[in-house]
Design a protein around this nucleic acid. Structure first.
Lengths: 252, 252
DNA sequence: GAGTGGTCTAGACCACTGA
DNA sequence: CAGTGGTCTAGACCACTCG
């Protein structure tokens, strides 16, 4: 049985990959149903005359794709596709726009040094009221249409001059890297929905109270200290978030 | 040198895990900076007197955490934390609410059989104008406050009776599974921002034109055919999306 | 050609589950 | 207890990169 389920040991395609694809096919075609057990690793190894380590490499691909789950002492079982609360790939807003083929353009509305206030002290977890921040206001446009209005803050250090013309990378990460000698390694983003204020509506050229996304981003350094904060207003009529979910496929 | 960088080969903790954590620590402490090369696999294996396969297992943990990248023929290099367009964990709205400790309650406002229309034919990719759908309207509440209004559609098959009292799992996935003998394995969600219509405002008890999230979900079966569709209206003042990004840590 | 990571083997011992 | 997956070894050969 299973005549076409063969593996070419002399192929340039790795054995573990051929085997993973073979098992993935059986699962996707429903020949192996959720809850069912895969053949044991030893069985598969004997059947295809390959090493058990190679079988394990193949199965580990399926595990990381979320299609099967191994249980020590029991066996390896086909998972039910979990359609919630899983790892997903979220395309960055801006890359999404560029894919469509529009030209993106960032305009710096202003850059200045500001004193701290209670909000910034809370966000950046600092006590010193003399701390000063660099404050940037930028607008992202595509084809002369304004899409995003963004306010960005990072610590001010006298080390480097702030020349507006000198800003190569106006993203929050870029500004932090340019102004303080720190590498942001993690971030937290909060996405909310709101309606445009008068100022936001004016800058983006949309009606007051039009729906907008509000995306706050907080950047952290290696020691989990906040090093940058931004608040971005996205036009609600131009942005949407698309999320794909379910079993990840191996490779493509 | 590096006295504390040791591995206990007799520990219950796997060697590959100890080594992965050791290397992760060096990267997080900045002893290995982005762009720098790790020692070669053979070097590490000799240094700790372990097998190269075990070293590879450790490094593969770092690779899947996105902290390093291996390049055949060249070496293994510490990655720069990529703070955009990466895999992220998106908590499901509802699970998020339950974590806070609120009791969730789903009310079924109605369930009926409807004829198809041009919108449903487009969404479900069908041609037959005689197709009929099951149409559910539900409301999700927490502590007597209405949070989400949802309209759900799935194919109507006469196989099973539709008893409202019989609905155990009112999620879209649950309804699809209950009504047609099909297992949804993947989904596509689109998140948009909008303002509440008159009907939505009435049902959710919010002002007309209040900001809301609109989440459309399309469920697919094994053959990538749409089997369920829902459109959910989330109160904008009660929901937000939090996204963590950057280097994933190994385990906890 | 020397050195790197990528694949693969044929064993071994262990920890865990279930009858 | 027999059978499962989890870890580990000490080799081997390959494909790739770069001088």
């Amino acid at each position: 049985m299973n005549d076409e389920l063969k593996i070419d040991k002399n192929s340039v395609i790795p054995i573990y990959y051929q085997l993973a694809k073979l098992l993935e096919g059986q699962i996707l075609r429903g020949e192996l149903k959720p809850g069912e057990a895969l053949p044991t690793e030893t069985e598969i190894a004997n059947r295809f005359e390959i090493s058990r380590m190679t079988v394990r490499r193949a199965i580990s691909e399926l595990i990381s794709a979320g299609m099967v789950k191994a249980q020590q002492g029991k066996g390896t079982f086909v998972s039910s596709p979990k359609l919630n609360n899983v790892f997903i790939e979220l395309n960055d807003f801006d890359e999404e726009i560029e894919k469509i083929g529009l030209k993106l353009n960032t305009t710096i509305l202003g850059a200045k040094i500001v004193k701290t206030d209670s909000r910034l002290m809370r966000i950046f977890e600092i006590d010193d009221p003399n701390t000063r921040f660099l404050f940037y206001r930028t607008v992202l446009s595509a084809d002369d249409e304004r899409l995003v209005y963004e306010c960005k803050y990072t610590f001010y250090t006298k080390k480097k001059p702030i020349l507006e013309s000198n800003i190569k990378d106006p993203s929050l990460t870029g500004l932090v890297k340019a102004n303080i000698d720190v590498l942001p390694v993690s971030s937290k983003k909060v996405l909310q929905v709101s309606v445009a204020t008068k100022e936001e509506a004016r800058i983006l050229g949309i009606p007051i109270n039009a729906p907008v996304f509000v995306a706050e981003e907080l950047l952290y350094d290696l020691e989990k200290k906040p090093v940058g904060w931004s608040k971005a207003i996205y036009r609600g009529d131009r942005y949407q978030l698309t999320i794909y979910d379910g079993w990840l496929r191996i490779d493509n």
